[in-house]
């Protein structure tokens, strides 16, 4: 099971890194999402893998599973969820304002370059 989990984290991270280095906002958002899945799984595993064990110490049970990483993952999921929603809205706004979905907002119109020289927007 360790190998499967380690491979899953590795593949998710690799995919996330690859996608977040792309030039358009949609793959970047997907990449960030994959990275957050990978890190959630990673955090979860850091409490060590255990099956069918209670999270609270019970003398009758053969052991226990560490509840703290589960709490950390819960927090991380909530934060990642909110951040993803925010970055999607921002990407949509960038697309509508810059006219394309490139992360550098290529093809900025001539009037904008004029404004860029002028400074304030």
């Amino acid at each position: 099971m360790e190998l499967v989990i380690a491979l899953t984290i590795g593949v998710l991270t690799a995919g996330g890194v690859f996608l977040s280095l792309r030039g358009h906002t949609f793959p970047v958002v997907l990449g960030l999402t994959l990275l957050s899945y990978a890190v959630n799984l990673f955090l979860f595993v850091m409490g060590r893998l255990a099956i069918g064990l209670p999270p609270i110490i019970n003398p009758a049970a053969p052991g226990y599973t560490d509840p703290l990483p589960q709490a950390l993952v819960l927090t991380a999921i909530v934060i990642a969820f909110g951040m993803t929603a925010f970055v999607i809205v921002l990407a949509l706004r960038a697309k509508s304002e810059l006219g394309n979905d490139h992360v550098d907002g290529l093809h900025i119109r001539a009037s904008d370059q004029e404004r860029q020289k002028g400074g304030r927007t």
Partner: peptide, 17 residues
């Protein structure tokens, strides 16, 4: 503003990473 949105997008993405 357009330029602010562009700078903001970079800022948000690098901080999410």
């Amino acid at each position: 503003g357009r330029l602010r949105t562009k700078a903001g997008l970079h800022y948000v993405v690098i901080n999410l990473v």
